[in-house]
Structures are given as C-alpha cells and as structure tokens.
Amino acid sequence: MNCQLLQARMSRRVFAGGTALAAATLALPALRAQPKLEKSKIALSVGGKAAFYYLPLTISEQLGYFKAEGLDVEISDFAGGARALQAVVGGSADVCSGAFEHTINMQAKNQMFQAFVLQGRAPQIAFGVSTKNMPNYKSIADLKGKKIGVSAPGSSTNMMANLVLSRGGLKASDVSFIGVGTAAGALTALRSGQIDAMSNTDPVMTMLEQKGEVKIISDTRTLKGTVEVFGGPMPAACLYAPMDFIQKHPNTCQALANAIVHGLKWLQTAGPGDIIKTVPESYLLGDRALYLASFNKVRESISLDGIIPSDGVRTALKALASFDPSIKADKIDLAKTYTNEFASKAKEHFKA
C-alpha cells in the first residue's frame, strides 16, 4: 500500500513537472513571436516636454514603457513644436512628438509625414491677454501692433493665435510673435511685460489665470471649448514621422504606439498624487497645488486610447485652411496624414 502511495505521488510530481515544462514550452513561441524591431534606438524630438500637452509621453518614459517594448528612446526637448519638427526634417531625430496639424502643413510643402498614435484629443491651448499691459482690452482689434508670446514661431500655439486673430479680422502680420517656450520662461516673459498677450499650454496658462495675470479670450483646454473654437473635435499631440520611416520600421512604430497607449491606460486611473510622484519636480514650476489644478482642467483632453478621430482630422484641415493661404484644402490627402493601424493594435493589446 505504502509502495503504491509512493508511486502515485511520484507520478503526480512527474505529471506536474511535465505540465509546467509543457506550459513553458508553449510560452516560448509567444516570446519569440514578438516582432523584431527594425530599429531599437530611437531619437525622438518634442517641443515643450514639461507641458501637459505631452504628459502621455513623459508618463510612458518615466514608467519604463518604452524600455518594456525593447526601445531605447532618447528624447530631445525643444522650445516649441516647429523646432522639434525641424529636427526630424534635418535628420537628427527619427520621430516627433508634436501637434497633428504639422502633418497637414508638411504635406502642403510636398513632404509626407504621418501621425500614428494620439496623445491629446484637444489642443489644451489657451490665448490670454496680459492684465498688466492691456488692462482695457475689449476686442481682438486691440491686439494690432502688439507682441504675442507663443511656445515657438510656427508651433501649434502660433497656429491657434493665428486662428483667433483671423476671426477677429487681424492677420498674423498685424502682430509680432515671440517665442517664449512652455515653462518658466513663458511665465517670466508675461510677468515682466515683455509680451502683451500669450497663446500657450498648461500648466503655464492656469498659473497665470489663477493669479489674475491674464484674461483668457480663447480656450481649448476642454473638449467643449475645443468645439467652440474649432467647430469640432481637434486632434492635438501625437507621434508622427516621415511616411517612409513608418513604412520601413513598422515593428518599431508599433512598439512606440504600444508604449504611448500603455501610458494613456495608466493615466485613465491615475490620481493627482500619482502624477506628482511620476513627473520630474521641475515640471511643477514651483507650485504643486496650481500644477494639480491645471491637470484637473486638462484631464479630459488626454486621449483614452491613442486612436486619431477621422472627423477631428477634417476639423484640423478646415481650421488651418481658414487662415493659412498656403494650405489648399482640396489638394491635401487627409488619409495620408494619419494611420490608426498601430494604435488599434495597441488599444486591443492593453484593453485601453
């Protein structure tokens, strides 16, 4: 009896061991099946990384989501989106974390760029006038001849300012645009009176607004505000790259999209304390409470799943064509400005 018991125990162990071995063997092909990255070291440019506009990028970087996808991403931060784009055009960066509308602008110049994962579903840009320099401001016409701060000339903050001016009957040439970045430099420029108005992102604009230093005249930090300004949803920050790069590096682009969507999924349930613990201290601009107030204001504008909305793409083209004569709406092939192929797979993978 004891002998039979011993044999039964031994056969159970062998079976268990065999099952574990079989499970491990079954798991191996899945690991091997992960597509080989065509390029694992990626140079990524961004214009104003500390802004909430690019929070998903920072989260994915800080939480190691790029590394988890086998990527070594080196992020170069520039004063604004236009300069970050120049880095890709010049060949010093592979991919840009920037505003979707740059893909339309570049196609108008016969350069094909494509967005492949969305970070923001609203521009998060506010336009405000200085209460110190323009205490008697009444209408857009009052901005004629004034100095307007933007993150960098040609960036999305500049485009938003152009749109606001055009609706008030002014041309871009009626004002002077000054690049002030998206962090401490922007605060200093307005507070010291170097500029009369500013088009910028959060947390900068909320910090100035809460202290009564700017009067907000146009606001796209919420989904409702975005529809009021642009007439529909407006895709904002995304990862985009030259089309030939995407075609040659599909597995690498998939890995980048995976990392961003993983970050978006984390952001859906993250509390203010989680954000504070994750972003670099310098992003708080010395005021933790105001930083969190800003986050609460823009939270709904962060993409949920990385998917670029087709109606938003049409809104972007209509908005750009309304004030930029170099963009002929009928000459732009919108289908080439974006793809949801990678974001869709990432969404399914992470259940975002």
Rank of each mutant, 00 (worst) to 15 (best):
Lys147Pro: 07
Leu267Pro: 00
Met234Asn: 11
Thr157Phe: 02
Ile327Tyr: 07
Trp266Met: 00
Ala99Ile: 08
Lys146Val: 08
Ser155Tyr: 11
Lys138Gln: 13
Ala43Asn: 14
Val150Cys: 02
Ala319Tyr: 11
Pro203Ala: 01
Ser166Asp: 08
Ala33His: 12
Asp330Trp: 10
Lys277Tyr: 05
Thr103Met: 05
Ala22Asp: 07
Ser303Asn: 00
Ala82Met: 11
Gly149Pro: 03
Leu304Thr: 08
Asp333His: 12
Glu300Ser: 11
Ala189Val: 04
Met160Ser: 10
Leu85Pro: 08
Thr222Glu: 01
Ala352Met: 03
Gly120Gln: 08
Ser322Tyr: 05
Phe113Trp: 12
Tyr53His: 05
Ile327Leu: 04
Ala289Glu: 14
Gln7Arg: 15
Lys41Asp: 14
Pro123Lys: 02
Glu228Met: 13
Ala27Val: 12
Asn296Phe: 00
Ala237Tyr: 06
Asp311Gln: 10
Gln7Ser: 15
Gln254Lys: 09
Leu292Asp: 04
Val88Gln: 08
Ile276Leu: 09
Gly271Arg: 02
Gly80Leu: 06
Asn105Glu: 15
Phe230Lys: 01
Ala27Asn: 07
Leu334Lys: 06
Ile217Phe: 04
Pro56Ile: 02
Asp333Cys: 11
Leu44Lys: 00
Ile276Gly: 01
His249Met: 05
Val214His: 02
Val227Pro: 10
Glu61Asp: 15
Phe323Glu: 06
Leu26Ser: 09
Thr339Asp: 03
Lys224Arg: 14
Thr58Ile: 08
Phe52Lys: 02
Glu38Phe: 08
Cys96Val: 15
Thr131Gly: 03
Arg12Ser: 12
Val95Met: 03
Met243Leu: 15
Glu281Ser: 12
Pro235Ala: 05
Ser11Phe: 15
Gly149Glu: 05
Gln7Ile: 15
Glu213Pro: 05
Gly286Ile: 07
Lys265Arg: 09
Ser282Thr: 15
Ala93His: 03
Gly263Met: 01
Phe127Gly: 04
Ile275Asn: 01
Val150Gly: 02
Met159Asp: 14
Met106Ile: 10
Gln268Cys: 04
Ile216Cys: 06
Ala22Cys: 15
Ile148Trp: 04
Met205Lys: 04
Arg167Glu: 11
Gly149Val: 01
Gly181Lys: 02
Ile332Lys: 00
Lys146Thr: 07
Gln34Tyr: 14
Ala68Ile: 02
Leu170Tyr: 00
Leu165Ala: 08
Phe245Tyr: 13
Gln7Ala: 14
Tyr54Pro: 01
Glu348Trp: 10
Arg314Ile: 14
Ser139Ile: 09
Ala257Ser: 12
Gly154Pro: 09
Ile302His: 00
Asn162Phe: 11
Met243Phe: 13
Ala141Gly: 09
Gly47Met: 03
Gly154Ser: 08
Ser156Leu: 07
Ser218Ala: 13
Gly169Val: 08
Met106Trp: 12
Pro280Gln: 07
Phe177Asn: 03
Gly81Cys: 06
Ala50Thr: 13
Met160Ile: 13
Ala30Cys: 14
Val14Arg: 10
Thr206Asp: 10
Phe342Glu: 00
His249Tyr: 05
Gly193Phe: 05
Asp72His: 07
Gly70Tyr: 01
Ile125Tyr: 08
Asp244Tyr: 12
Phe350Glu: 01
Cys96Ile: 13
Phe323Leu: 06
Gly17Trp: 13
Val73Leu: 05
Phe66Ala: 00
Arg288Ile: 10
Val214Met: 03
